[in-house]
Design a protein around this nucleic acid. Sequence first.
DNA 1: TTTTCTTATGTTGTGCACAACATCATGAGG
DNA 2: CCTCATGATGTTGTGCACAACATAAGAAAA
Lengths: 249, 249
Amino acid sequence: MLDRTDAAVRAAGRGPEDEGARGRFDRIYQALRMRICLLDYAPGERLREEDLAEEFGVSRTPIRRVLVKLEAEGLLRSVHGVGTIVTDIDVGELAQVYELRVELAELVGKLSPAVVDAPMVERFRQIRESCDQMVRKADPREFARINMEFFHLFNSLTTNQPLRELSERLYYQTTRIWLKTASRLKEYEELLVDEFIIFQREVADITEAVEQRDPAAAGHIRRAHIAMSFARIRRAADASVANAAPTSL
Amino acid sequence: MLDRTDAAVRAAGRGPEDEGARGRFDRIYQALRMRICLLDYAPGERLREEDLAEEFGVSRTPIRRVLVKLEAEGLLRSVHGVGTIVTDIDVGELAQVYELRVELAELVGKLSPAVVDAPMVERFRQIRESCDQMVRKADPREFARINMEFFHLFNSLTTNQPLRELSERLYYQTTRIWLKTASRLKEYEELLVDEFIIFQREVADITEAVEQRDPAAAGHIRRAHIAMSFARIRRAADASVANAAPTSL
DNA sequence: TTTTCTTATGTTGTGCACAACATCATGAGG
DNA sequence: CCTCATGATGTTGTGCACAACATAAGAAAA
């Protein structure tokens, strides 16, 4: 029986540098997923297993493990003899994912709602403040980061773990495409500022709902915002291509 | 440019026995997932990579690839030095998954509904007939098989691919637990017959809705049936444990 | 007898060399 | 000049030996 104690001691005394196989796996996985989501690896870009192996100080084997998982989540696609490339989805598929995200957002406020306590409310308020402070400089990367942070916080409104995981998965599939689509538009700078202001408004509204201990209302607000966000980006994209090719008239 | 033609020809002329890496991967993946879902591998059971490698005539490497994907889907859990074991979830987690499945079932009929043509209706009718013919012998395995077949058919009512994948994932997570829970009850035989009759009724109702070209109605019917199915199994399980331990009174 | 340490055994995780595959460059033949 | 074959190059996929790890059995000491 002392073996278990020994093992527990070793696990507890494990420093941040000497991680086990599981910890290393998670670390690399999170790092790569973040890079894909933040467009460090753009859709269509090719990843070389050997480069990643060298960077993380391991061989190709554990890297491949991570890549398989990312492929299972639809973020990568490995082709024998060609390479592992970051997936890119067209507007039709994106619409389907958003269609689903909209519904799941509402469900987050409806299914197994978490008890909203003071610390939870405080976290929402902090995000809102971070938002207000950062409104002057609309850095795309910072916007993506805070957007992700808020997503996770909103997601914690439900205790339904499967719902959380599925929402998270769809989120990571869409935001990067959203960012990529937005960055290709000519009115990129203004659009980003507008989106940030709208996002700021969303955070404020949802924080208010949370303050009133009303997760369902928060869900409805977020549902509407996600739907409108996609509608805006699609309109902007359509208008952009319409402006790009009027020379043929 | 002719390289692509050559590649296409080789891909088309590829026989069933000489499959590429991708085909082999999918084959093993589907086989293992089916075994887990049909309780050939019971929850808690330990899988040995080497046995699987020998059975499928490959080394451990491609097997591990499959196991990683199955782990990403929540069907397996690999522990260093211990083994890869089939996941087992308690009634609380199961309730959460069902809670979500119920909602997704309704969404299948609501989001991006597929056009219901004559062949589609015919497939539903065939399932209904298979159901009627098989009502006399209530074989658990056959029940699971036809249930799965019907699930896939129902899922094809939506063209929303992400919704399909998510529904499928939750389905594979729950049915095996449902089967396992049911098989542990004392009234297993009668319960199975009852469930089969109820399932038969569900198939008939949904087929009727499909015949009337009303996917939304089909979604509502299935939603109700999934919810009731879980309520029944939970009640039966509660009653079973209540009967198992009244001796302490 | 009980406890504790050591050892044996079995499992997953890792590293490395090589095979399978796709693509591009090169050049011979028309 | 164009077409097609052929090899060169780079990538992912596979097999195998070994390391890391957890567990259970057994021996030694209290």
